[in-house]
């Protein structure tokens, strides 16, 4: 398919006139292009999934900082288990929930490298709570990218620790009842109280502005890692259209109306004097 251009396919498929200005489409006029570090293959994520956007901005940051050779990622178990297929950096797969423990080992052996883990809420906040809390408490100098969609996406939408009260999932068909199933876990706020943690910030990727903010935050966290300030966590509140049983647009609306009031965006902890 790569030989056929956009213009050819458009011409074949539609009878509409093609408004394709070749004077503008020149290399010097490029404003936005897919990051080089993101491997050019189709992603397996559902249409509209926030994981892909998070992958994209993380790789943009790597591109902009020029640290492709110096960064090592740890992939989790969950929807993003194939993160190593898409990110063209050194990656290591960890057992379910143990990404922070693996990242600790990598960072201690190679302290000059940047190390990040990319984990979902089922991985980081449920099965991997102990590893995450202790890595944070030890003040390991790693970046944790925490994708919070309030559900176990990969296994078809069971209730996760971060599920909102009253939210319907396959294992809470009448909505999460906090009396029997407990309250949602504010893992970022919990970790922010630990002395080893340098930077905790919560963002979302459902609007262009929020994408820009999340990207800046990731760049900041990697900069803090370079300075050796300690454990950095960037939480990204995303959607899960398939398992929330919504269209991508509706799921983004749900993020805006329900998730963000519950998980307010912004910096939770910043290093002193920054």
């Amino acid at each position: 398919m790569s030989e056929r251009t956009y213009v050819d396919i458009e011409a074949e498929l539609t009878d509409q006139p093609i408004n394709f200005d070749e004077d503008i489409c020149l290399a010097e006029n490029v404003v936005y292009v897919k990051p080089q570090t993101l491997i050019d293959i189709p992603m397996h994520y559902c249409p509209g999934c926030g994981h892909s956007t998070a992958h994209k901005i993380l790789m943009e940051v790597v591109d902009e900082m020029g640290i492709q050779e110096e960064i090592i990622g740890v992939a989790p178990v969950g929807c993003s288990v194939f993160a190593y297929h898409y990110m063209n950096v050194d990656m290591q797969e960890a057992a379910h929930g143990r990404a922070c423990a693996v990242a600790t080992g990598i960072k201690r052996i190679m302290p000059e490298k940047y190390v990040f883990t990319y984990q979902g809420d089922g991985d980081l906040a449920a099965i991997g709570t102990a590893e995450t809390v202790h890595a944070a408490n030890r003040g390991e100098n790693i970046l944790v990218v925490f994708i919070n969609n309030g559900i176990y996406g990969m296994t078809s939408g069971q209730m996760a620790p971060t599920t909102l009260p009253g939210m319907v999932t396959t294992t809470s068909p009448y909505g999460r009842d906090v009396k029997t199933q407990g309250h949602p876990l504010y893992i970022s706020n919990l970790l922010a109280n630990l002395p080893g943690v340098a930077y905790v910030s919560r963002h979302s990727v459902h609007t262009p502005n929020n994408v820009r903010k999340a990207k800046k935050s990731l760049a900041k966290a990697l900069e803090y890692q370079k300075q050796g300030l300690g454990f950095c966590l960037v939480e990204i509140v995303t959607n899960c259209p398939s398992n929330w049983k919504m269209t991508p647009k509706q799921s983004n609306q749900f993020v805006e109306e329900k998730m963000i009031p519950f998980y307010p965006l912004g910096d939770i902890k910043v290093p002193e004097g920054k």
């Binding site: 503008i24 404003v31 936005y32 189709p42 926030g50 990727v205």
Partner: peptide, 28 residues
């Protein structure tokens, strides 16, 4: 998705939110 009019000013908002990074934006 297809482009339907000539009002584009190359703000790159579409490309930023595009999960699959399929949009390349040019501005002149």
């Amino acid at each position: 998705a297809i482009k339907v009019n000539d009002l584009c000013n190359g703000c790159a908002s579409c490309a930023l939110v595009c999960p699959d990074a399929v949009i390349t934006v040019y501005r002149k």
